[in-house]
């Protein structure tokens, strides 16, 4: 493997150090723990929003720390949940007196670790709510939607909840906004290659040169079908139809769209895919309110992409369009 790293065991530490040095006007790091908080935390009178998860998804998670998004990010080791003490310290650092919402990706480790942090914070009188994002349609059938994993569509949930909190929503309102965004968001991904884990130096799964896997998770969780690599138009059609049919999205729906690269797929290919995705949605009279295209939630150096749609109503649209100013997301 070729990687520009120093110590494979210090990758998460060193990337956070670099990120904080790069954006001193936006963020600061807490001492002793891998927690990044917005520069002016805690914001008094505002519900705090805390996200957490393993690293390896850059610029997710820490890249969106700041105004209109979230207040704290707890950074775990690569693909591994962060620890309870870090989450607790992050919670304390952003508590502005209105409670804190944890937005998690519905992974067992995250729920256990952040669950302990929640217990500790609540014992000190800080109200905590948890919303688990479940946008990945490949990870469980609709009948078990609560089992689904959270992937790139998390960005929409963060955007909506972050705006609600910034506008002065109380904890319950911010939580409800997050739940509403989540229930209107669906994502489908495709992987063309594994990613190389720095700590082991090995790919996290094997796939032939001429194959791709539809529905693979962002940590290499198995998908729903492995096939020969198809053309961009065919892949665009598969992803779009899987997403559209799941909610389902219908004619006259208005959507926010995220076409997300997983790390090693160039923007060039994302635009070729988008060309077809737009055509399919237009033919179905689904109106794209805004499209985000780029590497928003990666899987280290995996080749592939995911398509997320969030169905908008007036409230979600207003919150989606509300201002945000963070290192890697601005609106």
């Amino acid at each position: 493997m070729k990687k520009l790293i120093n110590d494979p065991l210090r990758v998460a530490d060193e990337e956070v150090e670099g990120f904080v040095k790069a954006f001193p006007s936006y963020v600061k790091k807490l001492e002793d723990v891998r927690v990044v908080v917005r520069k002016n935390a805690p914001v008094q009178g505002k519900v705090g929003i805390l996200v957490g998860g393993g690293s390896g998804h850059e610029p997710f998670w820490f890249g969106y720390t700041g105004e209109g998004m979230y207040d704290a990010v707890i950074v775990g080791e690569i693909f591994s949940s962060p620890t309870p003490d870090a989450a607790y310290k992050g919670t304390k650092a952003i508590d502005g007196g209105e409670g804190v919402l944890y937005l998690l990706g519905n992974y067992e480790g995250d729920k256990m670790n952040l669950g302990i942090s929640k217990e500790r914070a609540e014992a000190e009188g800080i109200p905590i709510e948890i919303v688990n994002v479940t946008d990945d349609v490949a990870s469980a059938p609709p009948s078990q939607a609560q089992e689904r994993r959270g992937i790139a569509g998390n960005l929409f949930v963060i955007k909506v909840a972050g705006a609600k909190a910034e506008q002065g929503g109380i904890l319950e309102e911010v939580k409800n906004a997050a739940l509403k965004a989540n229930s209107n968001t669906r994502t489908m991904g495709v992987a063309l290659s594994p990613c190389i884990l720095p700590a082991t130096g090995r790919p996290n799964f094997t796939i032939s040169e001429d194959e791709m896997e539809i529905g693979m998770g962002i940590h290499g969780e198995p998908g729903i079908e492995r096939t020969k690599v198809k053309s961009a138009d065919e892949v665009a059609e598969i992803l779009t139809m899987k997403v559209v049919n799941d909610l389902p999205f219908k004619g006259n729906d208005e959507v926010a769209l995220l076409l997300n690269g997983l790390g090693s797929t160039p923007l060039q290919e994302l635009f070729i895919l988008f060309r077809k995705i737009e055509e399919i949605l237009t033919s179905k009279k689904i109106d794209i309110h805004k499209a985000l295209i780029g590497n928003y939630c990666t899987s280290i150096d995996m080749m592939g992409c995911s398509l997320s749609l969030m169905r908008l109503d007036d409230e979600l649209k207003e919150l989606f369009d509300a201002p945000a100013d963070t290192p890697y997301f601005k609106m």
Binding site: G76, T83, M112
Partner: peptide
């Protein structure tokens, strides 16, 4: 237990630590 909770990470850290 606390040390493992804080240094292992993931589900495993919580389970062994607890």
């Amino acid at each position: 237990g606390r040390s493992l909770l804080e240094t292992v990470g993931g589900s495993v850290g919580v389970l062994y630590g607890s």
